[in-house]
Amino acid sequence: MKTLGRYISPGWFLVAPFLLLVAAFYLGPILNILWLSFTDPVPGVGNYRELYESDALVRIIWTTVRVCIVTTVFSVLLGYVIAYAMVHAHENKRNLMLGFVLVSFWISILVRTFSWLMLLGRNGLVNNAFETIGIISEPIAFMRNELGVLIGMVHYMVPYAVLPLLVNMQTLDMRVMNASRNLGASGTQTFWRIYLPLTTPGLVASTLLVFILSLGFYVTPAVLGGGKVLMVAEYIYVQLLVTLQWGTAAMLAALMLFGVLGLLYVMSRFMKLSTVFGGTAS
C-alpha cells in the first residue's frame, strides 16, 4: 500500500468506487451501444449507410434538428425576457417569479403535455370558446402537428433557458449600465453594446442546454405530434420495442451522442466552456 501510494495519489483510492460505478453503469452501456451500431444485425457500417440510403431516416433527423432549433430560439428568447424581468423586479416579486419557474420543474412532463391537449385540442377549451363566440367556424389545428410539438416543447424548456441566464444577469454590476447612460448612451445602445455582450455566456449556456435537451425529447413530440411529427427519440423507441432493429436504434443514439459532443467541441473553439458553465468571465 505504501509503495503504491508513492506512485498514485491517495485521492484516487477515495474516488475509485465512484469511478467504477460510472464505468460500469454509464460508460459500459454507451460502449455497448457503439458496439451494437456496428455489429447488429450484421457486422459492418450497414447501419450508418442507411443515413444515405433511407429518405425516411434523413427526414426524421431533419425534422428533429428543425424542431430543436425553433424550440431553442423561442425558449431562449422567452427565457431572456423572463430572466431580465426577474433580475430587475423587486426582491419579493423575484422570489415569487422564481417560485413559478421552479414549480413547473416539479410537474410531470406527462401532466404538462396532456394539459396542452385539453387546452388546445380539437374540442379543447380554446377552440370551444372561440367557436362559441363565433370567431372561428372550424377548430384551429393546434395539436397533432409540428405547431403542437413546438408549443409543448417551448413550454417545457423555458425554465431551463431561464436559469443560466438568471445566474449570468445576477452577477452583472449594474453600475456598468449606469456608466453607459452617463456616457450618453440611450437605453437601446446600452442594451446592444453593453448588456447583451455581458450576457452572452448565459445566452450560450442556455442555448446549449435547451438544444441538447430538446434533441432527446420523447414524450411531448409523441403525444402532441400525434404520430405525424416523428423525431429521433420516438423513432429509436419504435426501433427498440416495435420493429426490434436494435442496430438502427444504436446507430441513431450514437449519432446524437457524437452530434452533441461535436457541438460542444465547436463551441469550445469560440469560448471557454468553463465561463459558460458557471465559471466567471474575465
Binding site: D173, R175, V176, N178, A179, S180, R181, N182, L183, G184, A185, S186, I194, P197, L198, A281, S282
Partner: peptide
C-alpha cells in the same frame, strides 16, 4: 434632463469599466 443627456462625466465607485 435624463442622465444620458446631462453630459456630466462620472468616475464611479469601483470604476464600472466595461469588462468586455
Amino acid at each position: 434632463i435624463p442622465a444620458e443627456k446631462r453630459n456630466f462625466g462620472m468616475v464611479f465607485q469601483g470604476y464600472a469599466l466595461f469588462p468586455h
